[in-house]
Design a protein around this nucleic acid. Structure first.
Lengths: 233, 233
DNA sequence: GCCCGAAGATTCGCATAGGATTCCGAAATG
DNA sequence: CATTTCGGAATCCTATGCGAATCTTCGGGC
């Protein structure tokens, strides 16, 4: 039946271990804003909610802790990270402005047809979700497209460490998307993403870098103009 | 006795939970190179070694996984991350060259007496360990001083996200220090660190940034000149 | 009326136990 | 002799149980 070489028979590289499923499940709860900021994440409560024991829940939370999305207090349990302040937003955008333009620079140098195709695909998703109306599903698709776009550029650097550094703050980026609740009506994002794609497509690192820098600067000004956050601590 | 406000009475923020101790213990094993690259990290084995059960070991390994120092394969256990290739070294230095000069720029803008004092302290540690001879303890002190120096600068940005991004690659930086095994005889590091301190002390971000950039470029050239690694995969 | 203190309930932290899966080596077959 | 198959050992993954710390509630004292 299955001929071929023996090493190709192993086709289940990572079966869905319970701990991985729990990790994804809790991640979805956080990213979809199902749990309000600061509220406690009871280990036993999550275990009962997912119909598993506490062991995989503990392990999943230990991983999530390093993403900054949950915090652990010894003997007191885990909590969802608190509401970000205005200075948190500013700090996050500063870190993005250091990382992402530099990654875009490298990615534009590594530009391939596949990269451009992927980015254009995410860009179409973004536009489509914008027209999808104001449903929650629409918002989710919008965030997901934006997240995919930015992550794909970092992946295109083909640099494990840049990806690791970006991943370390990606969860916070996503959480802040929820707060800022960028009204999708203004299509700044679409225009700015398009400029980035054009420069990458042209294999022009300098222009691509500038475009990403301008994009994040745009996010900063739009976020702070909303100023719906408590002032910095 | 202890008057003051009631909320100041909580003075034991994080007691040494077993999982934290195990985490530190495994981290020490890895950073001191007690375990060779690629070798398996048995959960039960570590549990017996530290005289604890598997539960805290699992949790500690889950945290370590996000640092890139250990890797997990479902149902097959954890392994020490494999030997880095020359291209890995290059990629790591690229990521450092993106992050650290930018952090130095911010840190120089935030320059305080305390920061300068800390950096000078670590600098003295570095010089002292250099004179300590070629013992393993001497190497360890050297690495530790170097690590403290670089981390302190990132902390001085007062930006949680930059610190998080840097922490995500810090383990790899430390592991690569072990491989490169920088002969401490050449005092390039001492000179370059001194230049960084001087610029920060003067509150001169531009010069500080350039000094850090030059430092990492120096690490790159010295590392690659050794070329004791297998060529890139 | 307000603050303090103690008993019960809740939750965390860790140890232990029992499937389930993988790995390793020996025997059997072509 | 090479390849496959099979059985035991080792390991991982998950569930459960128990002691310890924390939080909550309720009653007493100033």
């Amino acid at each position: 039946m299955n001929a071929a070489s023996p090493e190709e028979e192993v086709l289940i590289p990572g079966r869905p271990m319970l701990v991985d499923q729990v990790f994804e499940a809790i991640l979805s709860l956080l990213l979809d804003d199902k749990i309000s900021t600061g509220s406690p994440l009871s280990i036993d409560g999550l275990a009962k909610r997912f119909k598993v024991s506490s062991t995989p829940v503990r392990e999943a939370l230990a991983r999530l802790e390093t993403t900054g999305m949950v915090r652990r207090e010894a003997l007191r349990g885990y909590k969802v990270a608190p509401e970000p302040t205005a200075s948190d937003i500013a700090a996050l955008l500063t870190s993005r402005q250091i990382l992402e333009p530099a990654c875009t620079n490298i990615a534009a140098g590594n530009s391939t047809d596949e990269l451009v195709a992927d980015l254009e695909g995410f860009h179409r998703d973004l536009e489509a979700s914008r027209r999808g109306g104001d449903t929650f599903a629409g918002y989710r698709a919008y965030w997901k497209a934006d997240e995919n776009f930015h992550r794909r550029i970092v992946e295109a650097t083909d640099n494990e460490f840049l990806l690791r550094a970006y991943s370390a703050i990606e969860g916070s980026i996503q959480r802040f998307r929820l707060m800022v609740h960028n009204d999708m009506s203004g299509d700044h994002t679409v225009q700015e993403h398009q400029a980035i794609i054009d420069a990458i497509k042209a294999g022009d690192p300098a222009t691509a870098t500038a475009a990403m820098d301008k994009h994040i600067e745009g996010i900063r000004s739009r976020s702070l103009s909303l100023a719906k956050f408590g002032q910095q601590a």
